[in-house]
């Protein structure tokens, strides 16, 4: 931590205070950590995995009541059955992921061979297609079952997104995700950062805005509003649409790179999916 701080300080001095800095991922993360620490001095670092409930006391009470009878449980069970049921060709997820099902901590990662960010959802579908099965849809439906099961089995493992140095395209993907995060979009002209960094903890109409750090630790998420479990990219879609921006394709390059950038900022935190939200 201290080292990171020192690093970001040197960086700042090296380039002056100009805001058009190409900062290292480490410096990016240090900036987020400092920002949230100043905004929420009472929140312990490992509480960020609880999303908005790390900072919203009233919301937290409701949420804890909900968690006593987790609404995502049936989805975990359905996912377990999917995991254990062979495909038509006799193979199964187990054959694609011999170390599974507790594998969520390995995603997203840079896939050098394919030259792209590999996410868990994409890897699961690649497995299906390699075995002659139809790919699942990326926002709604049964992909959430298998994701719920894998998330549940991966609970407690630490987020550890790596930007490998041996392939400059990995850094490009990270930078692309970062650019996405800070770009204002839509008729209402918000960036992701406008709500989840600049205004984290503030109330937009009646909704408390949660910090971005820790946001990806608990996906997929059961949302009361959806009445079901949905993927991270479904959430991205919603957050784009609410500022009147056209959403991007789930598991397309834009959202995968965004996930890469966003997940990196949660490095070191524990996975605690699936989650339950309003």
């Amino acid at each position: 931590m201290k080292k990171l701080l020192a690093m970001s300080m040197t960086l700042m001095m090296a380039v002056g205070i100009s805001s058009n800095v190409v900062a290292s991922p480490e410096a990016d993360k240090a900036a987020w950590d400092n920002h949230y620490k100043q905004r929420f001095p009472g929140v312990p670092a490992d509480d960020y995995i609880n999303g908005v409930y790390a900072i919203d006391k009233v919301g937290r009470e409701n949420w804890e009541a909900i968690e006593e009878f987790p609404p995502y449980e049936p989805f975990i069970d359905a996912g377990e059955e999917m995991w254990n049921t062979p495909f038509a060709n006799g193979k199964g997820y187990k054959d694609c992921f011999p170390k599974g099902p507790a594998i969520a901590q390995n995603y997203p990662h840079w896939d050098k061979e394919k030259g792209m960010v590999m996410t868990l959802a994409l890897a699961l579908n690649n497995c299906r297609e390699a075995n002659g099965e139809k790919p699942l849809k990326y926002k709604k439906g049964s992909i959430n079952n298998i994701l719920s099961y894998v998330a549940y089995q991966s609970r407690g493992n630490k987020i550890n997104v790596v930007i490998p140095k041996d392939d400059p395209r990995a850094m490009e993907a990270y930078e692309d995700g970062k650019k996405f995060y800070y770009t204002r979009r839509g008729q209402l002209n918000f960036s992701c950062a406008s709500c989840h960094i600049q205004n984290a903890g503030n109330v937009l109409r009646t909704e408390v805005l949660g910090p971005a750090k820790g946001q990806i630790s608990h996906f997929p998420v059961y949302r009361s509003k959806w009445g079901t479990v949905g993927t991270l990219h479904r959430r991205f879609t919603g957050c784009n649409k609410q500022v009147r921006a056209a959403p991007f394709k789930a598991q397309g390059k834009e959202y995968r790179n965004l996930e890469y950038f966003l997940s990196y900022q949660s490095n070191g935190l524990e996975l605690n999916g699936p989650g339950a939200r309003k």
Partner: peptide
Amino acid sequence: AEGELGYAQAVAQKDLKMPAYLKY
């Protein structure tokens, strides 16, 4: 008009400019 405004909005942000509220 929306198409033109959306285009202008994106082009004006062609280069990433970090917001001042985030301190490095």
